[in-house]
Write a protein that binds this DNA or RNA. Sequence first.
DNA 1: TAGGCCATCTGGTCCT
DNA 2: AGGACCAGATGGCCTA
Length: 141
Amino acid sequence: MKSASMQDSDSTDDFQAQCTPKCQLKSIPARVEGLTKRRQAANARERRRMQGLNTAFDSLRKVVPQWGEDKKLSKYETLQMALSYIMALNRILSEEERYINGGDWSSLHGYDQFHEDHCQNYLGLGSPDACNHFLTESFSH
DNA sequence: TAGGCCATCTGGTCCT
DNA sequence: AGGACCAGATGGCCTA
């Protein structure tokens, strides 16, 4: 790729400045090979790291409410969904505490707030039917 | 076909 | 020195 070739030529220039022509002929292929091997090892590590990240995203998708069975949430959507879901659960917990301390379930708004936040801000779903279906699916378990 | 999403490569930076 | 993490670039695939 573009940046790779730039970097390779830069390091080759540095090397040529410190080495005789004979030395260069002998060692450049070995040096390039060494660089290539290190690069490939770094690429493999990066691939593993990103695969680990994707595994984590998959785990998150499993515990977060999801639209239907077919539509896989994107990474961005997964993070936004997790955020609003956690916030909604927090609200429910704090309102439950209020109820236990003499409050009233009619003031339970966490569920509604999650509905409003997520449908409108994150998924851009303005339709009441779509949002109601989402609510039913999300909190039925 | 344009736009969104993703995987991969890469170089730079920080940490151990 | 080597590994982890990050962000930019690039190309492939899919969908409206």
